[in-house]
Design a protein around this nucleic acid. Sequence first.
RNA 1: GCCCGAGUGGCGGAAUGGUAGACGCGAUGGACUCAAAAUCCAUUGUCCCUUAAAGGCGUGGGGGUUCGAGUCCCCCCUCGGGCACCA
Length: 909
Amino acid sequence: MEYDFKSIESKWQNYWAGHKTFKAVEDASKPKYYVLDMFPYPSGAGLHVGHPLGYIASDIYSRYKRLKGFNVLHPMGYDAFGLPAEQYAIQTGQHPEKTTTDNIARYRSQMDRIGFSYDWDREVRTCDPEFYKWTQWAFLKMFDSWYDPVADKARPVSELVSRFESTGYEDVTPELWAAATEKEKSDILMRYRIAYQGETSVNWCEGLGTVLANDEVKDGLSVRGGFPVEQKKMTQWQLRVSAYAERLLSSLEKLDWSDSLKEMQRNWIGRSDGTEVEFDTVCDGKHKSVTIFTTRVDTIFGVSFMVLAPESELVEELTSAGRREEVAAYLKEVKKKTERERIAETKSVTGVFSGSYGINPLTGEQIPIWISEYVLAGYGTGAIMAVPAHDSRDYAFARKFKLPVVPIIEGCDVSEASFDAKEGRMCNSGFLDGMDVKEAIEAAKDYVESKGLGRRKTNFRLRDAIFSRQRYWGEPFPIYYKDGIPYPVAEEDLPLTLPEISSYKPTGEAPLARAENWSYKGYPLETSTMPGFAGSSAYYLRYMDPHNGEALVSSDANGYWRSVDLYVGGTEHATGHLIYSRFWNKFLYDLGYVCEDEPFRKLVNQGMIQGRSNFVYRIVGTNTFVSEGLRKDYDTTEIHVDVNIVYNDKLDMDAFRAWRPEFADAEFILEDGEYRCGWAIEKMSKSMYNVVNPDLICDTYGADTLRLYEMFLGPVEQSKPWDTKGIDGVNRFLKKFWRLFFNRDEWLVSDEKASPEELKVLHKLIGKEQEDIELFSYNTTVSAFMIAVNELTALKCSKREILEPLVVLLSPFAPHISEELWQRLGHGDSVSFASFPEFIPALAAEDNVTYPVQFNGKMRFTVDLPRSASPVEVEAAVRADANTARYVGGQNIVKVIVVPGRIVNIVVK
RNA sequence: GCCCGAGUGGCGGAAUGGUAGACGCGAUGGACUCAAAAUCCAUUGUCCCUUAAAGGCGUGGGGGUUCGAGUCCCCCCUCGGGCACCA
């Protein structure tokens, strides 16, 4: 009976599907554990071996937790709305739903072959109306909520309205509210709603014909497609994520996420504690107070000018009559630059003098006000005080426009560059003189506050999320317009389903504007659709109760599953999905729809699997290829060759000739009778011909081998290259494991009692697994299996007492072979319902330990002692031995250091 | 520029401050075989050496702490990731 993975794997995959082995049912008698993978966007290219890495890791953990007695929820679904399907539709005219459905089918069949323990009854698709009903519902809740800064949570808008009516709130008095028209009321509320419509500077991408969120833009280009992005003022739907900035920041602490990921989120949220200071300004004799934001009030005695952002509303008022022309010219110049140009020219300094002056509130000194694009309108107040001696950007500006540089820290050199460090002793700074910088920051803040010149202020870099996309393949907004005022679609009319349109081609207007009868109760509906992150923000909640037609998730289901215990996915979502989801969850928490305020308790970021590309070397101007070791003798071009026709870096020359027509008559110059290819580690991609399809690996070696090998490659969190040639090792391991049970057709397993030596092998392994699985150290776990199986093979041990627990241990990693052997061992149930074997420490311990005895770190002799010996006993034995031995040679033993179970060191003098 | 993370054989990678290189790949030699595949055994960091014994050197570089450092501390170099006029 050979290890026939093909029949074993299909047999058990059918069994699991048929028996719904992994169906999760709420069961209050068992502890729950929720393991989630970031659901994939089903692209047309299908999965390559890099994609399942995280899925395998989480599947192993799920199966392990099940063995440990947990009720495990392990679902999967698809992030199915998105741009590529729409782009494809534009090119081919095919409905995005069709391509999406096809791609999902492909993904599903690829995943099924790997033997995941998903509960497929809970599958969700973000493009399914039954799913996006709840995306739209959440949007309506956000539209109908405002953020109460006192309660520090979202509340229904109706509460805000009653405040307007009774006591008034902020600048809205009861009189003003009562007198307001319907349109004015709508505008006022828009300033408070969590989901609101507002004019803002947005990332407009002409190439895609839509606006994009900040995390969808990188280096001035769209992440999808790489088209240039420009800043444009537009009225768009937005989510008031910024209201949650402080909570998003502070609750990071209680999350079990990697430090680097938390750090990324902290940077993205960008809290900075500073001070707002009022500066009196004079423009053509008129006075106006201008507020600036700074984190370094301590440097206020070094202020030599002020700067306004070009987009700031203050520019108009603070431009003197005599400077209008120059300023207008500058603003025009700034405006026509694209975002990309701005970034590219980040080093060049531009600006224009406004003609007006500010008064330093502490010194009374008059300073010029400039306008420059290095100050951003969207951050702080859009106006700054410039301290060129201690801020590198102000310094560059001062040097370019020949403005004074006034150092205020003792002994600092500002002849070449500014001194930005927050250290040193203050000087030229009035009452701050002599203080340390850190001291001075606080003293200056206190002073400014006590004199009424300003106040402490915390700013965040986190912006509200722009929520409209001028695209077709996304969730429609449940919003209609009456007299230009947006109104929500009634909750009972959800889902508002995506209409059919005749053509997907971009025409400059939103595709939904072309839909016939795109109206609600006779009024026109919003024509934008929601962005990709809308559907992925609460999908983990939907898995808890995926078929509920009455609620996103019932409070029973939510109360049982609570939140995701383990979330596995890539770091690329650090500042997108993982921020939006946390925001979305906190919002639902505020309104009492969910019971936990954080969605993902523990997060593991799987690394990328890189491709290992192979090259052949063509002699220039010929069709002759020279082997890698000989190429230096020729003038060659390096050409990527498909890794699937290369074995151990040796080219299959016939396959190469058949690969592409232009190589059909290729000639080769060989070394040692072989053609050796060069190699390099690169991103796994079609164009590098280094993509390895998991289906192929399943065909040749089986899913269990694939699973083990992906884990064996290295730590889950780390990026590492895929190299198919190493896979034979784990495949051999599985064959060896099989041979412990079978010798050809002979069933070897006996009920004989295991020897202490055999038990030790088993319990060493159990101990190792316990520790390493919890730490996601799966590569060392797989190694431990190999060692155990090698030892048992050497012992010729085929005893049930040893092998049965071993099958259970292996089942999370290689579930198919484990199920098969479990059944052959006479069990009727799936191995998934077995229990993780209990660890008996005494059986794992060695009887005797050999202690190397070292003198001042140099090994001299060894002593054999029982492992159970205490450090004191070890020391006594060593002293006795050392004194009788010649090693000490008359030297005094100063001390004896005993490291339990490892080593003994004697310090001599 | 700023903030993280990482540098260990030919390769992927192991090592709670305690015998560096586990485990696997690759390579070399051997067994089995008419032969191949499969399987098994041995060797495999490096230097001196015919070999062996014994030893020296070895975790990016330089210093330090320690009886003892891949691991901790300081400086530097290289690579990867994130942020980038955020005042």
